[in-house]
Design a protein around this nucleic acid. Structure first.
Lengths: 123, 123
DNA sequence: TCAATGTGTGACATTGGTGTGAGGGTCAAG
DNA sequence: CTTGACCCTCACACCAATGTCACACATTGA
């Protein structure tokens, strides 16, 4: 697929798709005319990238952890450096913290909305 | 307490504390000499703000939802506008999405690290 | 063929969170 | 009284993600 379709399917500005490629987060082939051509799996990839960006990870880190999140992990297993392991462990822990923070605040908002809805019904 | 102590207790640059105040996220009194003076509860407040920033919420949104996360919710219940409710519901849903994303990726990284550690033990 | 749409590159602007430094008060300890 | 640590404001700089615009070429459909 070409960049326009990928853009629609991922609800992502074309500008950003090119940016993600520049940052090494996604890959494209080129058609004879120079147009970018994407394989289907890139759709999921982009969605994953966007999700990680949304939760505050910079592209630098995303680029590092993405390969480890592929189903074809086996390929990468032998090449892992201690340095990489450290990064992954740190990110894993940071993610756990974020999950905790989000969960707490999510519940607080839910509770609040719940209370408000009762208030309305009572008035 | 003065800004230096708050900075230490929250592990937050003084610069940022003043910024958060400018954005209306925290409050300070002023001592006779012009120094900022904070009440104890601000420590938790700052930690909460930082957590929310880390998970990608902009100060604009944080400012809106913070009042609803206080324990003294009752005070705010009567003043809630439909507009505010909408914002809260949207943020609640976005948080849920983020939690899902983080959970998924957290598990993936954990699994990966697990696999790697086995690999190492086997070699 | 012409117009509209899609794509390419490149450059500049913007935004939000953050860093940093200048220049100047406050205050406590030596 | 002076020094050092702390505080004030203000301004400029930075970075990463994103928006926007200009200009050129490709594709497609009327």
């Amino acid at each position: 697929m070409k960049i326009g379709e990928l853009s629609k399917r991922t609800d992502t500005p074309v500008r950003m798709l090119r940016y993600y490629e520049e940052q090494g987060l996604i890959h494209s082939e080129r058609l004879p005319n120079g147009y970018r051509s994407y394989e289907d799996y890139v759709v999921d990839r982009v969605r994953q990238v966007r999700g990680l960006l949304e939760v505050g990870l910079p592209t630098r880190i995303i680029k590092q952890i993405l390969p480890c999140l592929d189903s074809s992990k086996a390929i990468y297993l032998p090449y892992v450096t201690p340095d990489m392991i450290e990064t992954l462990e740190r990110e894993r822990d940071r993610m756990a913290e974020k999950i905790e923070c989000l969960t707490k605040n999510h519940r607080a908002i839910s509770d609040y909305l719940e209370a408000v809805s009762h208030e309305i019904r009572a008035s």
